[in-house]
Design a binder for these strands. Structure first.
Lengths: 125, 125
DNA sequence: TGCTGATATGCAGGCGGGTCGATGCTGCTG
DNA sequence: CAGCAGCATCGACCCGCCTGCATATCAGCA
């Protein structure tokens, strides 16, 4: 998996058909599945939840290992996957790496799953 | 995996905290991850899309193998996973098994991911 | 400069999952 | 009743992923 991060960005493009409407293309299905795969893990869901509910909406790795009960390399691994999926953004301040949610990333995924609210299908086929 | 279908039902209960708000519990994260895992596959996303856009909102296995390019056992396997996750329902009429979407299943998942837009949006004007 | 602490990366083991061919099961039909 | 068609299940293979240990990298500090 190279650049899954771009997948979410591309899916936000209006021409990408969501789950509802016409049958989605093979490539679109793979992109959406890639982002969902990043979400479909208990540890990563808890990471997102922990970061989102952190004091400033951000957290460093050292704050996340203990609540998860996972080793530091494993936590870094999951954070990397979430970042590459476009769900988290990383900012390094000094020795610490602070992670925070990409503002509308998860909402975008939810919108892709939600049935269309009467959107004109400009799909030419 | 035993009864993932109940997972979605339990998560629709209001006491289950979604991704936003307080940190989710380990058990809730595993339940939500289980349903997301059922979604996080290109073949299954396309199956949902195909069934949803079928003439009567339903389709049998024989209609789905060709568009997916997968063998019949594989398609049945994916349909089984989606059904156990509570996303599809199966009705057998004669020799055929018709699958259709569980009405609000996917929307429920989308709601679990979406932050509550009423409170907690500190940046919301 | 050398040391310490916070992260990231490499590597390996183990497990779960996607796929297919073969087979069993069940209604329809001649 | 026998044959057939649609579907589910079984067994097996292979690949990807989660995890931890060991190690590398980097920034701050004495």
């Amino acid at each position: 998996m190279e650049n899954v991060g771009t997948a979410l960005a591309e899916m936000t493009m209006p021409q990408i058909s969501p789950l509802a409407g016409e049958p989605i293309e093979r490539a679109d299905a793979e992109r959406l599945a890639g982002v969902l795969k990043a979400l479909a893990d208990p540890a990563r869901l808890r990471l997102l939840s922990l970061i989102q509910s952190a004091p400033e909406g951000e957290a460093c790795v050292c704050d996340l290992t203990a609540p998860l009960g996972l080793s530091q390399p494993t936590v870094s691994h999951h954070l990397r996957i979430l970042t590459e999926a476009g769900l988290l953004e990383r900012e390094k301040r000094g020795v610490w790496a602070y992670y925070r949610l990409v503002p509308t990333a998860i909402a975008t995924i939810a919108d892709l799953l939600t049935p269309p609210r009467k959107r004109a299908t400009k799909k030419a086929r």
